[in-house]
Design a protein around this nucleic acid. Structure first.
Lengths: 225, 225
DNA sequence: CTTCTTTTTCAACAATTGTTGAAATTGGCC
DNA sequence: GGCCAATTTCAACAATTGTTGAAAAAGAAG
C-alpha cells in the first residue's frame, strides 16, 4: 500500500488535541462535552480518556502543547532585541518582540494557533483559572520581558510597570478573543480578524502607555508617604 | 406584626438575580447550574424558571438589570465633562468619565456591582456572545464616547480611534476579571482588587495611548494607497 | 369564612454528562 | 501461522442537567 500513513497513535492524539483546542476556545471548558470533542476529532468517546485521562487533564494538555513553543519563540525575539540594542532596547522594540510571534507571521495564518490564542484569552480572563494557569505556564517568561522594560524605562516604579503590563495584557487578550465587536462598533472599518492591523495599533498605543510612566516625565502624583 | 417586610415577590426575584450574577461571573454560563443558583438564593429549583423562563433568559435578565443604571451614570459623567470643558474636553477627562463610575465610588464597595463587572468581563471576552451582547447593551453609549474622543483628537483617523478604544476596552475587561494575576506577577506589589489603583494607572496609560494617534504627532506610517 | 389568583414546593421527566470495564481489533515480533 | 501488548470500540454506569405539571401554600378581595 502506497498510502501515506503517519503513526496512527500520533494521528489520533493530535486530532483530539486539535478538536479540544478549537472547542474549548469557542465555548469554554464547561461549554464543551467530551462527545463533541470526539466527534470533531472523528474518534470514539472513550479515546480522549484513554490518552489524556479525565477531561481536566485534556484541557491542561491542550494548554501545554503550544506553550513551550510559544515561550521559546518569544524568548528568541526578546534576546535578539536585547542583543541588537546592546542592552539598551526601546520600549517599542520590546513590545514588538512580545507581540510579534503571536500577531504576525505564520501563526496568524494557522487555524490551530488562532484557536490556541483564543483559548489563552479565555483562560487569562477567567476568574477561576486566570491567576493560576497563566502564572504556571507563562510567568517565568513575562518576568524576562518586565526586566527588559525596566531596562528601557530607568527609574520607573515597579507598581507602575506592573499596571502598565496589565493594560498591555488586557488589550492583547481582547484581541485574541476574536469577538468581532470592533467590526460592528466601527461599522466595518476595523476587523478583529486582522491581526496585523491590531499588531501595529497595539504597539503604538501600548508603547505610549508605558512611556507615560517614564520617571522624568511624571511630575505629578508621586509617592504616597 | 412590626416585622419589616418588603414584598416577597421582589425579595425572591432579586435574590435569584444576585445569586445568578455571582455564579455566572465566577464560573461562566455553562459552569453554573440552576440548582446552584437556587441554593445560593435560598429558593426552590423551579423558581428561577417561574420568574425568568429558561436559563438563557435569566442570564439576559442579569445583564440587563444593571446595564441601564450603568449607562446612565456614564452618560451623566460624559455630559458633565463636555459641559465643563465647553465641548473641548481633554482625552484624559473623557477617559475618566468613562472609567469613573465603574472603578471609583460606591460601585467599588458593593459586591453586587463587582460581580456584575466580572460578568461583563466574561461576556466581552467570549467569542460566543462578546460581539452580539456587548453591542446590544452598550454600543449606543460607546458611540457617544467615541464621538467625544474624536472631538478631543481632531484629525484622528477613525481606524486608529477604534483600535485605541479596543485597547482601552481590553485593559478594562481584564481589570474586571479579577483574576489575581497581577498580584502574583508583581510579588504582592499590586492587587487586582484595588480598583482605585487600577483606575489611576489605566487613565494614565490609555490617555497616552490615545494621544499617540494624534494627527500631527504621527509623521510615519501613513496612508496605504 | 369563601373564592380566586399568585406564588412556592415537590417529584419526576427525558436527555446528557464524564467515566469505565470488558470485549474486539489492530500491530509488531517470533 | 501464533503470541502479546497496544489500541479502539461498545455498551453501560451513576450522577447531573434544564424543565415541567400538578399539588400545596400563601395572599388578596368579597
Amino acid at each position: 500500500m502506497s498510502v501515506i500513513r503517519t503513526e496512527p497513535r500520533l494521528d489520533r492524539r493530535t486530532a483530539i488535541l486539535d478538536a479540544a483546542e478549537e472547542q474549548f476556545a469557542k465555548h469554554g471548558y464547561d461549554g464543551v462535552t467530551l462527545r463533541a470533542i470526539a466527534k470533531h476529532a472523528g474518534v470514539d468517546v472513550a479515546l480522549p480518556n484513554y490518552y489524556f485521562g479525565p477531561k481536566r487533564d485534556l484541557f491542561d494538555a491542550v494548554l501545554l502543547r503550544r506553550a513551550e513553543i510559544l515561550n521559546q519563540a518569544r524568548l528568541e525575539q526578546l534576546d535578539a532585541c536585547l542583543v541588537e540594542s546592546e542592552r539598551s532596547p526601546t520600549v517599542e522594540a520590546i513590545i514588538r518582540a512580545y507581540l510579534r510571534p503571536m500577531l504576525t507571521g505564520d501563526h496568524v495564518r494557522e487555524e490551530g494557533w488562532k484557536n490556541y490564542y483564543a483559548l489563552i484569552a479565555y483562560v487569562n480572563n477567567s476568574p477561576e483559572w486566570g491567576g493560576k494557569l497563566m502564572t504556571q505556564f507563562f510567568d517565568p517568561l513575562i518576568e524576562r520581558f518586565i526586566d527588559a522594560l525596566r531596562l528601557a524605562l530607568p527609574g520607573i516604579e515597579d507598581r507602575d510597570l506592573y499596571w502598565a503590563y496589565h493594560c498591555l495584557s488586557g488589550a492583547l487578550t481582547l484581541t485574541f478573543a476574536q469577538t468581532g465587536r470592533i467590526d460592528s462598533l466601527s461599522g466595518g472599518l476595523c476587523h478583529s480578524s486582522d491581526l496585523e492591523d491590531a499588531y501595529e495599533h497595539m504597539v503604538r498605543f501600548t508603547a505610549a502607555g508605558f512611556e507615560s510612566f517614564r520617571a522624568e516625565a511624571s511630575p505629578k502624583k508621586k509617592g504616597r508617604p
